[in-house]
Design a binder for these strands. Structure first.
Lengths: 178, 178
DNA sequence: CAAACCATGTAAGCTGTTACATGATTTC
DNA sequence: GAAATCATGTAACAGCTTACATGGTTTG
């Protein structure tokens, strides 16, 4: 469950509650888990069991009490071990390509409409991503190198969307030319 | 369960057994499901229940009998409805970016090693993909337009990997310059 | 003679999503 | 007065993977 490592990373930056982590996951694109309660609260309990985090309960008048989770020394070394471990290859899940694989059933007009819809969908994602980059509050910015790395990370997703756009535009151009 | 539509597409091309479908899934990159028995045989039963496919049992001496699945008229129209439906945005799952997000824990040498490992991983995937493209047997090639589309589909994945490579090389270059 | 191939299927388990439950407070 | 925010958690289900079970045939 690699979401546990993502959580450890966040807690290594600053102690947080499950609720705060959930919000970070919700508007992070690289930490692609949806940020649902079930996974986060369960992962936090497991991390505590494993000794990688501890929590402190903060009672509040007139709102529910918080559990503030803090990473432990063991948690930090677990995180570091994970960070230096051999990275997985990126996964590209593009259901659209499966649709396109069987789209010879369609006439030229229908096919063109399908491509347009995908192009618009990708454009939308690209715009959302660009806005997120502008807004960005949730970055640690502890060193200049870290600022650079986080910049490169959001650039990565942007470039993936841009690349996808270029590809569709090429497909459409070549289709018309036939 | 979109794997059902992927199966319908394949059966729309040619009637097959579960075992044959499994092999196609295994070495297809765009149909990203791993191609495990459980999912495929279960999906086939459901498709039959829904009236989208029928099967014919072929007994064989000295090897287990086959169930050859064939798409029905209803299956074809279900497939077409899916093909023209609004496509989903592509999903990029890059756990490496999460690793990189917390890699300011590493010294320059360790960070560089991490980037190198990712670069090699992506290069490997790119090569595998290029070989698959050369070998390609599993394509319908029914019309020139379909040949073109299938070509564009494998080109899509290749370009995603190439784009990823370019990105890493840029990151490494900019890191050294600091 | 071990491994892989053909061919079907099931069981157990992990991962992930949606929805439910509670209840006070703040914003529109 | 409805909806969103804060804050925790659970239940039910969908999706997907690994491993198990069977057993003959072919390839290395």
């Amino acid at each position: 469950m690699s979401i546990k490592h993502a959580i450890l990373g966040l807690l290594g930056w600053k102690s947080s509650t499950g609720y705060e982590l959930k919000k970070i996951f919700e508007d992070s694109s690289i930490m692609y888990w949806s940020g649902n309660n079930n996974q986060i609260y369960k992962a936090l309990l497991q991390l505590k069991d494993e000794g990688f985090v501890t929590n402190e309960i903060q009672y509040q008048e007139s709102s529910p009490s918080k559990k503030i989770y803090t990473i432990t020394g063991e948690g930090v070394s677990e995180l570091k071990n994970w960070v230096v471990s051999s990275p997985d290859a990126p996964e590209f899940k593009k259901l659209f390509l499966v649709q396109l694989a069987w789209s010879d059933m369609l006439n030229n007009e229908e096919l063109n409409e399908l491509l347009t819809k995908y192009e618009n969908e990708v454009k939308m994602q690209l715009m959302l991503e660009q806005e997120k980059k502008k807004r960005r509050i949730n970055s640690p910015d502890r060193t200049s190198r870290e600022i650079f790395l986080w910049d490169m990370i959001s650039e990565n997703l942007l470039s993936s969307y841009r690349n996808e756009l270029k590809w569709i535009q090429m497909v459409r151009k070549d289709l018309v030319e036939d």
